[in-house]
Design a protein around this nucleic acid. Structure first.
Lengths: 151, 151
DNA sequence: GCGGTATGGTTGACGCGTCAATCACGGAGG
DNA sequence: CCTCCGTGATTGACGCGTCAACCATACCGC
């Protein structure tokens, strides 16, 4: 099949990219301003907070946040400088590293949770009706499904 | 009002961020692979292609793509190295710059249009029904509206 | 044990985005 | 004129992401 998109489809595509981009930007900036944590910091701290002993092997953490190892490595380097996390040697595999949440990291994450959830509610959830949320859930499910083959 | 979000709202929020992120990534990578242009390149070339004389003042271009001037300046520097655009002095205001589409830039953009539209259709439009497109349009309109105050 | 390969993780280079500082020119008021 | 201010645009520093190259260790088969 080789038909063209309707212009509505194209417009909605642009709107999707632009709006989600703005949402990301606004919420990310707000999080940083209110808590000093970037969205990426938040994801990492969340995963570590939920982990047993507040520590994870580097590759488990990569799975948890769904990042490439390289990206994680770079980000952990920045977080380690700020003493949000620490990297210990792994007892059972000397290639490996264990990423450990520091006290400071745990504290900062706890302090960030409420502001973050409030921001998501105010700037996302409050804008949409229950029906819209349901419809959006379906749309995202289908998009993700469709993407699966070629991701 | 100080109620919490439902967990569905939060899940849909995460799905929105994750899915749009993946879409951006997959389509961006595909565009680059197929045409050698990044999404940002494409936006700039599109705006210039549509401009009178294929040239725009730097700040008009910034308005057209809705970027900060600083971001545009950095990006134009990279594009100029690749000879996709050129920067001329402006005749009427010697502070200003005129951004001009080069032949090469125009050629590359023309060659990129069809693959790009095809990719958007395949990975976005083909995944959704007409009803879903309409619903999504409404959702995005409301989100954008809601965002307006605090952007 | 020993060679080869797979795996865990890091590094460097580079594109992209943001912020704050800066520079150069234009324009108004004295 | 000339000073002061606003504006057009660039720069530098830094965080973030990706890709390809790399290093070290583990593990498998002989």
């Amino acid at each position: 099949m080789n038909r063209r998109m309707t212009s509505e489809q194209l417009v909605v595509w642009r709107a999707l990219m632009d709006t989600t981009n703005d949402l990301r930007r606004v919420l990310g900036a707000r999080l940083l301003r209110e808590t000093g944590l970037s969205p990426a910091d938040y994801q990492v701290l969340l995963a570590l907070s939920e982990a047993d002993q507040r520590r994870l092997r580097s590759s488990e953490l990569a799975d948890a946040v769904d990042w490439e190892r390289s990206r994680l490595s770079h980000h952990l380097a920045r977080m380690e400088r700020r003493e949000l996390i620490r990297r210990d040697e792994c007892a059972t595999d000397s290639r490996g590293a264990e990423v450990v949440l520091t006290e400071e990291g745990a504290r900062r994450f706890r302090a960030a949770t409420a502001p973050h959830l409030r921001a998501v509610r105010e700037q996302f959830a409050d804008a949409l009706s229950a029906q819209q949320i349901d419809a959006l859930a379906g749309i995202l499910r289908d998009l993700r499904q469709h993407l699966k083959g070629e991701a």
